[in-house]
Structure formats: C-alpha cells, structure tokens
Amino acid sequence: MNWEHLARTVYYRDGSLRDIFVFNTNRDDWAKWAKLVNSEYSVEYKYYDTDKTETAIDIANVFAVWDGLSEQYARASINVGGCIVNCFFFIEDELDNDIAPKEIHTIEGHNTLMHYLLQVSTLLQKPVVLTPELTPEEILLMAVNGQIQYPKVSP
C-alpha cells in the first residue's frame, strides 16, 4: 500500500477523527489492553473533575466508574509514535480509541499505528478495525490474524 493512496482513502483530512474499535470486549480484555499500553507506550491518564494526571491507565478506576462506585471519570491519551490515540472508556463491551488523521502524515507513521493495532488484535485475539468517526460499520482497515486487511481500500 503506498502512502499517497492511504492519505486519500484512510487519512483524508475532512475535519473528522478516525475511530479504532474492538467489539465484544469484557473486563479481562480491558485489563490486558491497559497493561499493554501502560508498559509499551507513553500514557497520560487525566481525571476530568480534578485535572489530576497520571502516567498510566488506572483500570481499577475505570471499572469503578462503570460499576457506579466512582465518579472519577478520566480519559487516556496514548502516544503511538507521535500519533495520539485517545480513549474515553465509554462502555465495557466496546474498546473505542480515536485518532486525528492529520497526525499520520507518512508511511512510517501509518506502519507505527498498524503495529499498535496488530499488538492489540494479537493480545485480545479479536479484530481491531479503523473506521471513519462514528461509523463503525464502514471499515477502512482491519488488524486480524497478524495481518492488516484493507476491505474497502484498493490501490
């Protein structure tokens, strides 16, 4: 896949984000993902109410919020080779990250992001899809079985 084609079909600049989804997740998946991210990447875990920031995802806090035991809502920003991958911990059964396409501007940046998607897919043994913002059914690319697939993007 060449960069010019990817720039036009995956990382086009229309002002919207791209979503990264893993569907049908559970707390075990979330805990594995958080452990991977905390150990492999630079993380900013920021609490909304206090502006307190930590350098690792506090997955116990996420679970407490989901269980209604805490109101310490937070978001995570993960630095994946200069591209910031954001996670807002909306729901338990869907791991949802987003990226700004303008942060991917070379084939090397694309390859670094694909490495992240493949790591997550391999760890969770589930497909990881990249879609246009708020359009989970429109798969631009997918990490599955150790490969990146481009179902709707042909050169």
Rank of each mutant, 00 (worst) to 15 (best):
N2Q: 04
E4P: 01
H5Y: 08
L6G: 05
L6A: 07
L6E: 00
A7T: 11
T9D: 03
Y11H: 06
R13T: 05
G15R: 06
R18W: 06
D19E: 13
F21M: 01
V22C: 07
V22R: 09
F23I: 02
N24W: 14
N26F: 07
W30V: 14
A31L: 13
A34T: 07
L36S: 05
V37S: 03
N38Y: 05
N38D: 13
E40F: 03
E40R: 13
Y41R: 11
V43D: 05
E44L: 05
E44M: 12
Y48H: 10
Y48T: 11
T50V: 03
D51Q: 13
D51H: 10
T53Y: 03
E54D: 14
I57L: 04
D58L: 07
F63R: 06
A64P: 12
V65E: 06
W66C: 01
W66Y: 07
L69T: 12
L69P: 00
S70G: 08
Q72Y: 06
A74L: 03
R75H: 10
A76S: 07
S77W: 12
I78E: 02
V80W: 09
G81R: 02
N86K: 14
N86F: 11
N86R: 12
C87W: 03
C87P: 02
F89R: 01
F89S: 01
F90L: 11
F90V: 08
E94T: 03
D96H: 15
N97R: 11
D98I: 11
I99R: 00
K102H: 12
K102D: 14
I104M: 13
I104C: 05
H105Y: 15
E108R: 15
M114V: 14
L117P: 02
L117D: 04
L118T: 13
Q119I: 07
T122K: 00
T122L: 08
L123Q: 07
L124Y: 06
Q125D: 10
Q125A: 13
K126Y: 10
P127N: 00
T131N: 03
P132E: 04
P132W: 04
E133H: 13
P136I: 06
P136E: 04
P136N: 05
P136A: 02
E137C: 04
E137Y: 12
L140T: 02
L140G: 00
M142C: 08
M142A: 00
M142D: 00
A143N: 08
A143T: 08
V144W: 00
N145H: 10
G146R: 12
Q149W: 04
Y150G: 03
P155K: 07
P155D: 11
